[in-house]
Amino acid sequence: MKNINPSRMTFKLEFGQMVSGGTVNPNTGARMKVFKPSFSTFAGQWSLRMSDTLSLAGLGITDAVVFFVRHREDITGDMLIKKDGIIYKINNIAYDDGLPPDGFDLITCTREVSKHG
Rank of each mutant, 00 (worst) to 15 (best):
F68S: 03
I93M: 05
G77M: 08
R70M: 08
V34C: 02
P26W: 03
G21A: 10
K33V: 03
I107D: 04
I4S: 04
Y88I: 06
P101E: 06
H71Y: 12
F35E: 08
D63C: 05
Q17S: 12
N3C: 01
A30V: 02
R70G: 08
G58M: 12
N3P: 00
E112I: 00
R70N: 14
T23P: 00
K12D: 13
N25W: 00
A30F: 11
G44D: 10
E112K: 13
G85W: 01
M18A: 12
T76K: 14
L13Y: 03
D97A: 12
V24F: 00
G29W: 07
S47D: 12
G77F: 00
P100Q: 13
G22Y: 07
T10C: 01
F67C: 10
G44S: 09
P100N: 10
F35W: 06
C109Y: 03
P37Q: 14
V34F: 01
Y88G: 06
D96A: 15
G22T: 14
R72M: 14
F35P: 06
N25E: 04
L13T: 05
T110L: 09
K36F: 08
T10I: 11
Y88A: 06
R49V: 13
F104S: 06
R72K: 15
P6T: 11
S40L: 04
S55F: 07
R49T: 15
R31C: 02
F15L: 15
L48V: 04
D74K: 08
N25S: 09
P37A: 13
C109P: 03
D105H: 06
D52N: 14
Q17N: 14
R72H: 06
A94Y: 06
A57Y: 10
S51M: 07
K89M: 09
R70D: 11
R72A: 12
L54G: 01
A30Y: 11
K12N: 13
V66L: 01
K89G: 10
M18W: 02
A30G: 01
K12S: 10
T62Q: 11
S114R: 15
I61F: 15
L56E: 14
W46D: 14
D97M: 12
K89H: 09
C109R: 04
F11A: 00
K83Q: 08
S55V: 04
T110H: 13
Q17T: 09
G85C: 02
D74L: 03
M18R: 12
P37D: 09
T23A: 13
L106T: 07
K82F: 00
F67W: 11
N92E: 09
A30C: 03
L59H: 12
N92M: 05
G98K: 02
K115Y: 11
S38A: 15
G22W: 04
D105Q: 05
T10G: 02
I81G: 02
R8F: 12
R49H: 13
T41E: 12
Y95H: 10
T41A: 08
R31K: 15
L106V: 05
T28E: 07
N92C: 00
L54W: 08
